[in-house]
Amino acid sequence: MTTISTTIAPPRPITPRVSPLEGLRQTMTLAWRTLVQVRHNPWELGDFSIQPIMFVLLFTYVFGGAIAGSTGAYLTFALPGIIVMNMLFVTMYVGTGLNTDLTKGVFDRLRSLPIARWAPLAGRISADLVKQAWSIFLLLGVGMILGFRIGTNMAALLAAIALILLFALSFSWVSVLVGVIAKDPEKVQIFGFTALFPVTFVSNVFVQTETMPGWLQPIVKANPVSILADAARGLMVGGPVATPVMQTLLWAALIAVVFAPLAVARFKRRV
């Protein structure tokens, strides 16, 4: 073993605080780290790539004919909703990743470094947005190959993507809260599936609200997943836009206002 000139370099100047710019750079570094993890864990890539494609194929070809009369018509109806549903599942990676860092001690190492206190969380959420964008483009691409067509224009499509990403940003706080509360990463996954499946299926993502029993319809209509799916449909395919977009923005704000302080409070208690 060679000698270790590992310590005691000329002392760096001690700074009193982290500048916002440094914090931003640290956030980018931590986001990079989360994305490099994907390279070493191809299963995760499969999770947010193959799984949504499976959903598109299954629903289009197995149920599409029965639900909408033809697979093409069904794809036009369902794809924007499937993109929304997939977005909700992908947000769970924020929680699982955060929980892994907390339980394995990585978080303590990060917190012992002279970096912005908010950088680790912001890094996770930024990385999540990259994964989200990737999933959306993948689903759109697969949809186009299968016959999905944008019925509006480029600006409307970009607005739809921005709206979905914004909602993801807000919903990440739910994931952060679960990630902080849960004992281990598996529990975050279990919560994600048990809570998100009913929420996404009791919506108009896969079938029109009018086909459901009367007592269920008010719930489906009030479900933010339905509202966001409507907004995405309006912006991608055509149809009413103003009301669902406004309501989506309100829901996103509401979720952030409720869950961000809760998550931060629990987070401070845990670390």
């Binding site: 310590t7 001690i14 700074t15 982290v18 780290r33 993890q37 860092d101 990585v106 303590d108």
Partner: peptide, 22 residues
């Protein structure tokens, strides 16, 4: 002056770990 302290120290131990997946 926690931020200043963090610029002086290195931490190794049961509670400060490296990332398994990297």
């Amino acid at each position: 002056e926690a931020h200043q302290v963090r610029q002086l120290i290195g931490l190794t131990g049961q509670y400060a770990s490296v990332d398994d997946t990297l």
